[in-house]
């Protein structure tokens, strides 16, 4: 591997993976605590009809209209889920299941009916993302990173994700207190005069923005995983919300780097030159980290607790 290849092919992909994972991972903390972990799943699935509708309305496959379409679809889905849950008095999971599958079906019918499937929009692409084709072509040596041109010619997905990730970090920092109390005790929050419903709607809108920004680059499946696994991992490790946020960001970033390397260079270990799906591999790495945390976390790990109990029994016996 030479520096040029690494800088123009691997570096942008790694950065995109890290940013996508971190932005979704941070928000995931609140989704997991609010028992809304699967809203990311629902939103990622409804991106398909959104993208197809964006294509049909704009007539191009330019990114912006498609992403706008996905955004709008995500917000409509979130609104529908909330409405059905409230007026139909259905459990949140069932409401989600009804809405996202139905909207996904609309997407597929639109795709087939309008011939949009010939225009390079396909459901599989939406699932797997396009991490490997994020290129930063102007970089040929490390010193290029110090030039202004490099940043002018930065891949667009990367630029978008930098903006979105920073915005999310700032929003969480600024509204940390409000997010915390509305998540823990909505009743108290409302009695303090906080607009509980507005805050949860805003959270879902930001989730939709993060999902759409990330999903173009890394695919919906990785987005779903990143809304859940890093936060769940961090949840196993700490009882402090601030620390949990930092941990989840760290876990997300490690999964992004680790998964990318495993997918790009792992196959060489058994002599195959073909890379595996990076998005899939990042998900798997995140899952492995979560599995490890669930077993080995210092206080709440299943194995740790079992060993603690055993030690206590032995102490009692002796």
């Amino acid at each position: 591997m030479n520096a040029t290849d690494f800088l123009s092919i691997d570096l942008p992909a790694i950065l995109v993976a890290i940013l996508a994972a971190t932005s979704c991972g941070l928000l995931g903390n609140f989704l997991v605590l609010r028992r809304q972990a699967l809203i990311g799943d629902a939103i990622s699935h409804v991106a398909l009809p959104g993208i197809v509708a964006g294509f049909l309305v704009s007539g191009t496959i330019a990114t912006l209209p498609l992403m706008l379409g996905a955004m709008v679809a995500a917000i409509i889905a979130a609104g529908l889920i909330e409405t059905i849950r409230r007026v139909g008095r259905l459990e949140a999971g069932a409401a989600m299941g009804v809405v996202f599958t139905a909207m996904f079906a609309v997407g597929i019918v639109l795709l087939e009916q309008t011939g949009a499937s010939n225009a390079h929009i396909d459901a599989e692409h939406a699932l797997y993302g396009n991490l490997e084709s994020t290129l930063w072509l102007v970089l040929s040596a490390w010193s290029d990173l110090l030039t202004v041109e490099a940043y002018i010619e930065m891949p667009r997905q990367l630029a978008t994700l930098i903006v979105v990730t920073c915005a999310i970090a700032v929003l969480i920092a600024v509204f940390f207190k409000e997010l915390k109390v509305t998540t823990f005790d909505p009743g108290l929050a409302a009695s303090l005069g906080l607009p509980v419903r507005t805050i949860s709607t805003a959270l879902i809108v930001v989730v939709a923005i993060a999902a759409v920004a990330a999903f173009e680059a890394v695919g919906s499946i990785l987005v779903i995983a990143m809304f859940i696994c890093p936060a769940a991992t961090a949840r196993m490790l700490t009882d402090n919300l601030g620390r949990q946020l930092w941990l989840s960001a760290g876990v997300a970033a490690i999964a992004g780097v680790g998964g990318y390397f495993a997918a790009a260079f792992g196959p060489q270990l058994w002599g195959s030159a073909n890379a595996l799906s990076a998005a899939g591999m990042i998900t798997v790495v995140a899952g492995v980290m979560q599995g490890f945390a669930m077993l080995m976390a210092p206080r709440y790990g299943v194995v740790t607790r079992a060993m603690g109990n055993r030690k206590r029994r032995l102490d009692l016996a002796s």
Partner: peptide
């Protein structure tokens, strides 16, 4: 049943990680 994570998180973990694994295998 065995960790502090609630059901929806469990569902999300399983669906995304298994599916991710499936995608890795398909890419192979």
């Amino acid at each position: 049943d065995h960790t502090r994570l609630p059901e929806d998180t469990a569902i999300g973990t399983v669906l995304s990680v298994f599916f991710g694994l499936g995608i890795v295998l398909l890419s192979h």
